[in-house]
């Protein structure tokens, strides 16, 4: 499957570009994408469980199965300050 990963805000700085394209085997989930990103950018390890993800611009849980051509956007965790 061809998957496009878009990054929001500081994740864009982290990846050095606003989007990257990856190839994944069928049946993979958003969790697998997050794991791949964490391997490449270990700084994500601490917050990876909390990252907000959209699939094709709609909120998606980390267990969501991916489809060929999906656009995944990663956002920082819910913010709690006031």
């Amino acid at each position: 499957m061809n998957i496009k990963i878009r990054a929001f805000g500081r994740y864009k700085d982290l990846m050095g570009k606003s989007e990257i394209k990856i190839k994944l085997k069928k049946g993979k989930t958003i969790w697998d994408v997050i794991d791949l990103l964490t391997e490449k950018y270990p700084i994500l390890e601490k917050e990876k469980r909390f990252i907000i993800v959209s699939r094709n611009h709609t909120y998606a849980s980390l267990e969501t199965k991916l489809q060929d051509g999906d656009v995944i956007t990663i956002f920082p965790p819910i913010v709690s300050g006031g």
Binding site: F8, R10, K12, D13, I52, S54, H57, T58, Y59, F75
Partner: peptide, 9 residues
Amino acid sequence: RQHFEQIDL
């Protein structure tokens, strides 16, 4: 970073 997005829920 002047980055605004809206996620459908």
